[in-house]
Simulated assay, not measured.
Amino acid sequence: MSPLNVFKQPLAFFSNQPVTGYYRDGYCRTGAADYGNHAVAGVVTEEFLDYSASQGNDLRIAGLREGCKWCLCTSRWLEALGAFRDGKISRNGVPKVHLEATEDSALRRVDLETFREFAARAETNGVNGHTGVNGVNGH
């Protein structure tokens, strides 16, 4: 069965610069061996990278920097969301999410409305091609 995104549509390709995904194929798809559930298609910021490193997960060693697209563990994304809600980091510290490239397995831990709050751009079931704030489309 082909992986589905949070809209129950075919999972969109996310990134090959850097090559991301549990299977290093550019898709945020998971499988039985992926205990971290690398399903969230996120765009990292310096604040997120700093926070993640402070929590023992330094993604810079994988070559990540501000603006990189990376398939994040659902629990790590939730950790950043919790830190934002607790006032430990700013909203910018929570990676923006590309919904069409986020596997539906992430919905076991995060509801769609929460993901929509942090969407990288307006995405509605693959129909909407609108750009986000100030015309930036997350690329």
Rank of each mutant, 00 (worst) to 15 (best):
A83N: 01
D50P: 02
L81W: 12
V6I: 11
L99I: 09
P3C: 05
W70I: 00
R76V: 06
N37C: 08
N128T: 11
T20P: 12
A83Y: 02
V44A: 04
D34Y: 06
V94R: 06
V110R: 10
K8L: 12
Y27D: 00
Q55D: 01
Q55K: 15
H139S: 11
R29M: 01
N137C: 13
G42N: 00
H130C: 06
V40R: 03
T114I: 09
V19K: 09
G36C: 12
G135S: 02
S75L: 14
G82H: 12
D104L: 11
V136F: 10
G93P: 09
L59N: 13
P18M: 01
L4R: 12
F115A: 02
Y23V: 01
Y35M: 08
F14H: 11
R85W: 00
H38A: 04
P18F: 07
L4C: 07
V127I: 12
E79N: 13
W70L: 00
A12W: 11
R108K: 14
K69A: 08
D34H: 07
T102Y: 07
K96R: 15
V133G: 08
N37P: 01
T102K: 08
G138N: 03
A120M: 10
L81S: 03
R60D: 02
A106W: 07
S105T: 14
D50E: 11
Q9F: 03
R60C: 02
G87Q: 08
G135H: 06
L64R: 09
A32M: 08
H38N: 14
L59V: 03
Y35W: 07
A106I: 03
N128E: 08
L11S: 02
G87I: 01
P3S: 12
G126V: 09
R76L: 05
T102E: 07
D34S: 05
L107P: 03
K96F: 10
H98Q: 15
R29G: 15
T30I: 09
A12F: 12
A101G: 04
E66N: 15
G135I: 06
G87M: 08
G138I: 00
F14G: 04
G135W: 06
Y51A: 01
A106R: 03
V44D: 03
A62Q: 15
A41K: 06
R24D: 08
D50T: 10
R65K: 15
Q55N: 07
T124W: 15
K96P: 10
R109H: 13
A62V: 12
F13N: 05
P10Q: 06
V40N: 01
P18H: 03
L11K: 01
A32E: 12
R65G: 12
V136P: 00
F48C: 07
V94I: 04
A106G: 01
C73H: 08
C68F: 14
I61A: 14
R24F: 11
E117T: 13
G26Q: 10
S54M: 07
S2M: 14
